[in-house]
């Protein structure tokens, strides 16, 4: 059986402590800059905060993974190198990287620290994953959310590193690490600036009938009726009117969250080493609830008991959930 480690999000030091106390095997976090893909206002860690967080987590047997999972623009790579230097000095247990240049720097400078390949690298074939393993000594790959469990099982047989899969949270399915939709409207890049739908460009407008419009950079990307559940203001989950669908429709993906709680036994059997919970931008309340639920479920499965999965629907985007491609390639 695989280790089935639980990898949990932490957007703030308090959230990190919450995740550790709720049973995380490892916590992932980032600095307050463009080096990670949750570069949101008021979120993330200063170096001093990360130092305290590492001490707190290690004292309780929990690992700390530092996300450096964005792509340095030309001329700005020093920011990523400095972040890696700081993380190594503070004793993080692994770096989560997407860019080959960042991976190469860490592999050369800090060969004793594990490298995990971020979902942002979009490595989905055994050949691609082996390339990262052979050239940068990557120890774990976080797989894109586009693969079925049989495909994951097959990949596992053909690669020399561990596999991590998302099991809960945001369900973004553009070619991960390559999405430029936010860039198109706001000028800021998800992949280089670390921000999808920057809050500074988001506005919610309440109409007289109680409907709410989500706007990004002045463009309306969805309008929710008075009783309708809402989602994040991301373009990939926007609802658009088109000549053939004048009533408006979700052209790419609905507001919905991934929830693989019922597939955990199959994922473990397929050889998945670690389960990732998305949501560094979420609250301590979310972290506490989701981590506790999956901690109990994983422990039940490891002990040979049937997992009693808690209801997490209230925490999902649009209050809807899916097993996505993990169940079938045609999930919509």
């Amino acid at each position: 059986m695989s280790l089935a480690e639980l990898i949990c999000p932490a957007g703030t030091p308090a959230a990190l402590r919450t995740a550790v106390d709720a049973g995380a095997d490892a916590v992932y976090c980032g600095f307050q800059d463009a080096t990670n893909a949750r570069n949101f206002p008021g979120l993330n860690f200063t170096p001093d905060e990360l130092a305290e967080a590492v001490t707190y987590a290690h004292a309780r047997g929990t690992k700390v993974l530092l996300a450096l999972n964005t792509y340095p623009p030309a001329g700005k790579v020093d920011l990523w190198r400095h972040a890696a230097d700081t993380g190594a000095r503070l004793g993080v247990d692994a770096f989560i990287v997407a860019d080959m240049g960042v991976a190469d720097y860490i592999a050369r400078m800090y060969p004793g620290v594990r490298l995990h390949l971020s979902v942002q690298a979009a490595a989905s074939s055994p050949e691609a994953i082996r390339y990262y393993c052979e050239n940068f000594s990557v120890k774990r790959v976080v797989l894109p959310r586009i693969l079925t469990i049989p495909e994951i099982r097959q990949i596992r047989r053909e690669i020399p590193c561990e596999i991590e899969t998302f099991i809960f949270g945001n369900h973004g399915l553009m070619v991960e690490g390559r999405c430029s939709l936010t860039n198109y409207l706001t000028g800021q890049s998800t992949n280089m600036d670390g921000v999808c739908s920057p809050a500074s460009d988001v506005e919610y407008v309440r109409d007289a009938d109680g409907s709410m419009s989500s706007q990004l950079a002045g463009f309306t990307i969805d309008r929710f009726g008075p009783e309708e559940k809402a989602g994040y203001p991301t373009i990939c989950k926007g609802r658009y009117a088109a000549p053939h669908r004048p009533e408006g429709y979700y052209a790419f993906e609905e507001p919905i969250s991934l929830n693989l709680s019922r597939l955990l036994p199959e994922l473990i059997e397929a050889g998945v080493h670690a389960f990732k919970i998305e949501g560094r931008q979420r609250s301590k309340s979310y972290v506490r609830g989701v981590v506790r639920a999956f901690r109990a479920a994983v422990d039940d499965i490891k002990a040979g008991r049937e997992a009693n999965i808690a209801d997490l629907i209230a925490l999902t985007e649009g209050q809807k959930q899916t097993q996505g491609a993990f169940e079938t390639k045609k999930w919509r």
């Binding site: 206002p41 809050a199 500074s200 407008v205 809402a230 209230a314």
Partner: peptide, 23 residues
């Protein structure tokens, strides 16, 4: 309570400067 969940369920409404609210 989780702010995003309260927003999804429409129990929480925000308007004006979204970045200020997020911070």
């Amino acid at each position: 309570q989780d702010g995003d969940a309260a927003f999804f369920s429409r129990d929480l409404e925000i308007s004006g400067d979204t970045e200020a609210v997020v911070r």
